[in-house]
Design a protein around this nucleic acid. Structure first.
Lengths: 219, 219
DNA sequence: TAGATTGTTAATCGATTAACAATC
DNA sequence: TAGATTGTTAATCGATTAACAATC
C-alpha cells in the first residue's frame, strides 16, 4: 500500500491556512472514540460551509464515504503529511527576549515537525546560558553553525531594527526558510521563503473588525 | 478640515492583512527624513505589484500626487486610523504561561491601540503575583471584572483544552472580541469576534511551502 | 518638456458557493 | 428504503492584475 503518494502539488493559500485548524477538532473526536467525521460537523466547528471543507479535504487527497464521512485518523495523518509535519525540520532561533523564550518553551512544535536546536543572541549577558534546555550562542556563530548542521529554518524574534541583519546571517548560513516574528519587511534572495508571523498582522484583523463594528453600532 | 471621515466601511481581508506591514517601511522612510513615498517603492519592499499597493491605499482613503507619491505621515496616520490603532482598547489576558508572559512584556501593543490591563490564571501559585507590572488575578474573577471595567478584548493564551471554558467566561463578562492563541476552534455567540492567532496557522504556511519545494527539487 | 506616478475602469484570475447526481 | 453525505461540475463572487488616461 502506497502511503507516501505525492499528492496535489499546490493548494489555495486559504486552504493551507484552514487545514491546521481542523486538527484540534479531529483530535478531540479521536479522543472521544469517534472514528469518522462529516464535513458538516467540521464546518460547524470552524464556521465554514460544508462544501468548503470538502474542497479543503480534496486538496489533501482525502477520500470519504457517502453517508459515513471521512476517517478521523486518516484526516489527521493526511493533513499532517500535507503540511510536512511528519518530517522533522531543525531550526535556529535568533533573539532570546520574551517572545523568543516563549517559543523555545512551546511544547507543540515537536508535533508540528519543528525542532529548535539552538538559540542565538547578540547580548553577551545571555550568551552561554541555557533557555528551556537549548544553549544560547553568539549571533556571530549562526552562519557557520547553520551551514555545518544543515539547519533549514530560521526563526527571527529580534527587534525590528535588527531583523534584516539577522536574516542576512541566516541566508548566509544556507537557511532556506525564515519565520519572521519581527514587524519588518525583509529583503532576501528569491529562493528563500519568508513567512511573516508578526503580531501586528493578526491584531490588525481583530482591531479592524472591532473598529468597523463600533462605527456601525454608534450610528 | 474634516480629518475624522468615516472612510470605507469594508476592505478586502487581504488588504487588512497587508496594511500593518506597510507601517515599518513607512516609519523607516519617515526616520530617514523622506516625506513622500511611491507605490512602486512600497511594492518592492513587500514583493507586491504597485497596483495592488495603490488599491490598498485607496481602501484607507489615501490620496497621492502624480509623480510625487503619497505623504509618508498621512499614510502612517491613515493606516493606523483605519485599523483602529489610534483609539485604545483595554484587554484582559488569560493564561500566564510562556506565551502569556511574552505578550504581557511586548512593548508594541500600546502603539497598536491595545492595553493589557490585567492577567488571569487558574494556578493559585501564580495568582497574586505581578508580571510585567500587571496583576495576576484568579480566572474566576474575570467575568465580573470585565463587566465592571467594560473591557472589550480578551486574549487567550491557555492550553487548548481550557480555551473554550475561558472564552465562555470572557463572553459572560461582556467581552466582544477574542484574540485566541490556543490551537482550538472556539464556539461563541454570533456577535463576538474571534481572531485565531495560533502559531500553527502561520507555521503551516511555512512548512507547507518548504515541503512543496523539497518535493519539487528532489524530483 | 518628458516621464514617473496616480486614479480608475476593465479583464483576468482564483476561491467560494451552489447544484445535483452518485452512493452507502 | 430513505436520506445523509460525498464527489464533482458549474455559477458566482471577490481579489488581483492589466491597461491607460490624467497629472504634476
Amino acid at each position: 500500500m502506497n502511503t507516501t503518494t505525492t499528492g496535489p502539488v499546490s493548494a489555495p493559500i486559504p486552504t493551507v491556512r484552514r487545514l491546521p485548524q481542523y486538527l484540534p477538532v479531529l483530535e478531540e473526536q479521536a479522543g472521544a472514540g469517534k472514528t469518522s467525521i462529516s464535513c458538516t460537523y467540521l464546518g460547524q466547528k470552524l464556521s465554514l460551509e460544508p462544501t468548503q471543507v470538502r474542497k479543503d479535504l480534496e486538496a489533501i487527497g482525502a477520500i470519504g464515504r457517502a453517508k459515513v464521512g471521512y476517517s478521523v485518523e486518516e484526516l489527521i495523518g493526511g493533513i499532517r503529511d500535507f503540511l510536512g509535519w511528519n518530517n522533522t525540520s531543525e531550526a535556529f532561533l535568533a533573539g532570546v527576549g520574551n517572545l523568543g523564550t516563549a517559543l523555545l518553551g512551546y511544547g507543540k512544535f515537536t508535533e508540528q515537525g519543528l525542532t529548535i536546536v539552538a538559540a542565538f543572541d547578540s547580548d553577551p549577558a545571555r550568551v552561554g546560558k541555557n533557555v528551556h534546555r537549548r544553549p544560547i550562542l553568539s549571533i556571530e556563530k549562526l552562519p557557520s553553525l547553520a551551514r555545518r548542521m544543515h539547519v533549514s529554518i530560521g526563526i527571527i524574534t529580534v527587534p525590528a531594527t535588527e531583523a534584516q541583519g539577522v536574516a542576512n546571517r541566516m541566508v548566509e548560513g544556507g537557511i532556506r526558510a525564515i519565520w519572521n516574528f519581527a514587524p519588518a519587511a525583509l529583503t532576501v534572495a528569491d529562493d528563500v521563503i519568508v513567512e511573516n508571523a508578526s503580531f501586528s498582522i493578526s491584531l490588525a484583523l481583530l482591531t479592524r473588525r472591532l473598529a468597523q463594528r463600533s462605527r456601525r453600532t454608534s450610528k
